[in-house]
Nucleic acid binder design. Structure first.
Lengths: 151, 151
DNA sequence: GAAAATTGTGGGTGAAAGTGGGGAATGTGA
DNA sequence: TCACATTCCCCACTTTCACCCACAATTTTC
């Protein structure tokens, strides 16, 4: 598995190309075939999953009963926003415009490692997001990280 | 298996021809013989199954009990609306008018990947469909994706 | 500390992708 | 049989994108 971490500020050029930080690139397994799957992230950002990680989700999706209305809605929502992009010779990906628009990205991007995927944020947006609850970081941390048995 | 995904807006020309997006074309296996089977989708859209995927459904249909009234109705509806179309030299398919009419398509189409098939939507119609329950997307997601054992 | 390799960024170009139209072959109904 | 519509097979145009090269800056290596 991948285990992405870190935060880098990179630039998206006029062609929509984005360089993947070398450190994160190294966390990409050979099974990913140099390919990421872009999708809409939770909150206002773009999520990029290595292809091999994405496959796990896909297998779950394939099991859903498409005759069920809720399942159809879920699938359409997720899949309509999913797209494969491959690294070019310079280890860059082409980020389609609709994803940049969704996250409000233009020129500069903050790339954040998120364990099994990476996220693309508009720099200011990410700043604001972090500061919004920074005061209570320790509190939030203790909450989400508490063990079921109370350790 | 195929695993179609993504959302593209393409155009149907005056002759009813529709280009298949290159990325989706690449997901087409050789067994499909460059052929899709068009049929009525669930909700107001046209579904296009690669021939090989369609065969799997056919096997399921063959198992249905034709002495059962509901099964007969289902079969007749599905089969009456099914038709094979082959890619032409430009990798396009010809979508018969009745399908376009059914989905209200005229000029522009949104093509959505749905794992084992692709769907054709009238752009506004798809927009409305997605937004109609957008507020509860996370809710739907947690519902349909929850594990049998409650994890 | 200098040389070499890697990394981040930018641009040019030819191939591929998306779109549209003409005309021959085929089929349909008056 | 003829007019008309439909469908298939070419050809053509525009836009997009994948690939190549380039270069400065940084990091690594000896």
């Amino acid at each position: 598995m991948a285990f992405y971490k870190g935060q880098e500020t990179y630039s998206v050029d006029s062609k929509g190309r984005l360089n993947i930080p070398a450190k994160m690139r190294r966390a990409l397994s050979p099974e990913a075939l140099n390919t990421f799957v872009l999708t809409r992230g939770s909150d206002r950002c773009v999520a990029a999953y290595p292809l091999d990680e994405w496959r796990r989700y896909e297998l779950e999706y394939a099991k859903l009963n498409q005759y069920d209305e809720q399942s159809r809605f879920f699938l359409r929502t997720v899949l309509a926003w999913s797209e494969e992009v491959e690294l070019d010779g310079q280890q860059r990906i082409m980020v389609p415009k609709k994803y940049l628009d969704f996250a409000g990205i233009d020129g500069k991007v903050v790339i954040v490692g998120m364990i099994d995927h990476i996220e693309l944020w508009q720099p200011d947006e990410f700043e604001i997001y972090l500061s919004k609850s920074e005061a209570s970081y320790e509190q939030v941390a203790s909450q989400v990280m508490q063990r079921p048995n109370g350790q």
